[in-house]
Design a protein around this nucleic acid. Structure first.
Length: 520
RNA sequence: GUCCCCGUAGUUCAACGGAUAGAACGGAGGUUUCCUAAACCUUAGAUGUGGGUUCGAUUCCCGCCGGGGACACCA
């Protein structure tokens, strides 16, 4: 029909023209034209069996490599030092990790970078607090909450404003004592972050925080002023975009009138480093939707600087609480991410213990299920949608949830455990007969076309929905087609379907950053 | 005021411009001497509103209504 449109033909006539020149007799039954100009192909069972044998033997499970591999940098997560990670970080962290995994699998050269917020005016207050009010026992036990307490104490006390400013100036000037306090803050926070990333199974190739670019800011601004990319306006160094209607009245400020540098300055230095030093030609910023204007500005600025790379902001919506407001604790604080993850694991553990009390490795299973449920709830829907966080929904273990998919995998593993060692089905032709077998095989073929689609618009939910349909097709097959009790080519076919399903589920969930337990 | 995002069953979410708008939860009904019933099967129920483009619009364009967000010296 697309062809008919471009040629201004009647869609049904175009379809007839295609069929007249098409020879697919060895693949399917004679095609039929239906509706407005659709062509229906009915695959022949022998073709399906041949095709399945090929796909089932493919280590990539039918997923093609990218025709044009890129050198991609994925910027995601980026929490702030001296603050606990909270629910606000979970979407970006999970989404960025999944997109990086998918890009790698498709053959792109991927570098992940955690651009932590380790520099800024808040350190004046924190250092001031550390010098005068610190509780060493609390710092030793759990430093980040103590840093938060100190920041709040100083922040709420107007008599300490000047002292905080002085500490900040000393830090920026390289004062050794303040520098040492700052270093410790970074270390403390990094440990707290690593604990959470370990729970989530997320890792980064680089941790180049904002402070990494400090020395680059002044030369960068000077250079941009000299080259005319930037100009002074009302005392501040700005980049203007007169040719861009969206940015005509939104210049990008890169130096304040007091000489200080800004968020945008660091980000520009970061882009330059990523392109020139890390040799990236495509930058992905997985950052919340509210920052869309900011990225539009710095990308336009980078273009004016002539940096040879494409940069894409991949925005996402918010997580809301049951009251449809931004998710907070009862006292109005951000929900610490660690608490959230531990609660997910606890809930999963209780359910596993109730359902299946004799399992070994219960801790690992609880982690795979609890964390998997949280990740799947995020990744199974469109990233721009604001969504309501609900334990009961994501851990109900019914319907379109991670445990449902994991359960399909577990059932397959169970079959293979029961298959005695010498009793493998052996090589030979496959034989398809039951509708449930056809349906499952056809679903398996679709994996190869589904995975690359994710990157069209950065939508892991396409893969999540596919995996759900695959698990659904498997469960139906499992009900209708006994595997171990069948014989000969039938048994061989069913075992191969099980094996291929397990591998696609494991790979597909793995691309989403979700683990599959062997039992549950 | 300008710009961006979102409006789909009671609820939470899907649908490169394609066929009868898919699921899940919740509702109603059914399935287990059989590989994990965390499952399967059946069933009722929805595109905010008005135009336009198209053979065809949830999707693209314009207006309106409703919700959220961003808009020079914070990050």
């Amino acid at each position: 029909m697309l062809l008919a449109k471009s040629r201004r033909e009647n869609p049904r006539q175009a379809a007839a023209g295609i069929l007249a020149r098409l020879d697919v007799a060895d693949i399917c039954e004679p095609p039929e034209i239906a509706g407005a100009g659709f062509i229906n192909f009915r695959l022949r069972p022998d073709f399906l069996a041949r095709q399945f044998a090929e796909t089932a033997g493919d280590p990539r499970l039918g997923v093609p490599l990218a025709a044009r591999p890129r050198r991609i940098l994925v910027d995601f997560s980026s929490p702030n030092i001296a603050k606990p990670m909270h629910v606000g970080h979970i979407r970006g962290t999970i989404l960025g990790d999944a997109l990086a995994r998918v890009a790698r699998f498709l053959g792109h050269d991927v570098v992940t970078d955690n651009h932590v917020g380790d520099w800024g005016t808040q350190f004046g207050k924190i250092i001031c607090g550390l010098k005068h009010f610190r509780d060493d026992a609390a710092l030793a036990a759990d430093p980040v909450p103590e840093l938060v307490r100190l920041y709040r104490k100083v922040d709420g006390d107007e008599t300490l404003l000047q002292a905080s400013r002085d500490e900040l100036v000393k830090l920026q000037g390289g004062d050794p004592e303040n520098r040492e306090w700052w270093n410790r803050c970074v270390e403390w926070s990094r440990h707290a972050f690593e604990e959470i990333y370990a729970l989530l199974g997320v890792s980064f190739d680089r941790w180049l925080g904002e402070s990494f670019y400090n020395d680059a800011l002044r030369p960068l601004v000077d250079r941009l002023l000299r080259s005319g990319v930037a100009e002074i306006s009302e005392g501040a160094a700005c980049i203007f975009f007169p040719d861009d209607p969206a940015l005509r009245e939104a210049p990008c400020l890169i130096r304040k009138s007091d000489g200080g540098y800004l968020y945008a300055t660091t980000d520009l230095a970061t882009i330059e480093y990523r392109v020139r030093e890390l040799n990236r030609d495509l930058l992905w910023y997985v950052v919340g939707a509210p920052q869309q204007l900011h990225f539009k500005q710095i990308f336009a600025a980078a273009a004016k600087m002539g940096l040879p790379a494409a940069a894409i902001h991949i925005p996402f919506g918010s997580i809301l609480g049951e009251n449809r407001k931004l998710m907070k604790t009862r006292s109005g604080e951000n929900v610490p991410l660690r608490d959230l993850l531990m609660e997910g694991i606890d809930r999963a553990r209780r359910i596993v213990e109730e359902k299946n009390p004799d399992l070994p490795e219960r801790e690992e299973i609880a982690r795979a299920i609890g964390i998997g449920a949280i990740k799947y709830a995020e990744l199974s829907q469109y990233r721009m949608t604001d969504y309501i966080f609900s334990w009961d929904k994501m851990l109900s273990f019914q319907g379109n949830t991670a445990p449902y998919l994991q359960n399909a995998y577990v059932r397959i593993r169970s079959i293979f455990r029961k298959l005695e060692a010498g009793a493998q089905a052996g090589a030979g032709e496959f034989a398809f007969a039951e509708p449930a077998e056809f349906a499952l095989a056809k679903k398996l073929f679709q994996f190869g076309e589904t995975v690359p689609q994710i990157l069209n618009d950065f939508r892991p939910n396409i893969l999540a929905n596919y995996l759900y349909e695959l698990a659904n097709a498997f469960h139906a097959f499992y009900e209708a087609c006994p595997v171990l009790k069948s014989e000969g080519a039938i048994r061989r076919t069913r075992l191969a379907l099980c094996d291929a399903t397990a591998r696609v589920l494991e790979k597909g969930l793995g691309l989403l950053g979700i683990e599959v337990p062997a039992r549950m």
